[in-house]
């Protein structure tokens, strides 16, 4: 077995999220959804949110493929944002996401960690149309242009974390 510095990154709590993720799957009452990929490594993350009329994220689900870091980070983020208002989620910055992950990452791996965070920031502004809500939230194929989201979505904050 590995014994040594790899545990800096693959800590037990990260492996647990990777192997037994929180809310991987469909959100039954999704009102918002968004999906993005990182073409460099083939990772993609799809997020479905149920945002109630008061602007509170009631439920958050993700699905996707990718490395341990990207998938564990998505799982942690779903847990983190449930019960928060849209405004609170907006104010959850890239730095906060890296802090939530809890392990120091090299700049390359920070992109893996921040993929789900970027998707969530976009999903807040990507309401599903009524016909999508009746079925399951339609999943778009990876790589599809974000600008084709149902409503115009502002660019998420792009400021990189330290």
């Amino acid at each position: 077995m590995f014994s040594g510095p790899e545990e800096e990154i693959y800590q037990e709590h990260i492996l647990e999220h990777y192997e037994d993720p929180y809310h991987r799957g469909h959100c039954p009452r999704a009102t918002h959804a968004h999906e993005e990929d990182n073409p460099l490594c083939g990772d993609f993350i799809h997020v479905e949110l149920h945002i109630d009329p008061q602007g509170v994220v009631r439920e958050a689900y993700f699905d996707g493929e990718g490395c341990c870091i990207s998938q564990a980070a998505a799982s942690m983020l779903m847990e983190q944002i449930e019960g928060k208002t849209v405004q609170e989620v907006e104010q959850f910055r890239a730095e906060d996401m890296l802090r939530l992950f809890g392990v120091r990452l090299t700049p390359n791996r920070q992109k893996c960690c921040l993929l789900s965070w970027k998707v969530v920031q976009q999903a807040l502004y990507s309401p599903l149309q009524q016909k999508d809500r009746d079925g399951s939230a339609a999943r778009r194929s990876p790589g599809q242009d974000a600008s084709s989201a149902p409503s115009p979505a502002p660019e998420p904050p792009t400021k990189d974390a330290p």
């Binding site: 790899e6 990154i9 693959y10 073409p39 490594c41 083939g42 490395c67 341990c68 870091i69 791996r109």
Partner: peptide, 28 residues
């Protein structure tokens, strides 16, 4: 197991390999 996780752990043992699409996305 994703290629990046493989390459990261190999590096922890001093083994340098490439992970990703190697600039050949259509092939992958």
């Amino acid at each position: 197991i994703h290629a990046h996780d493989v390459a990261y752990l190999l590096d922890r043992h001093g083994v340098a390999v490439r992970a990703g699409h190697h600039c050949a996305m259509p092939l992958h």
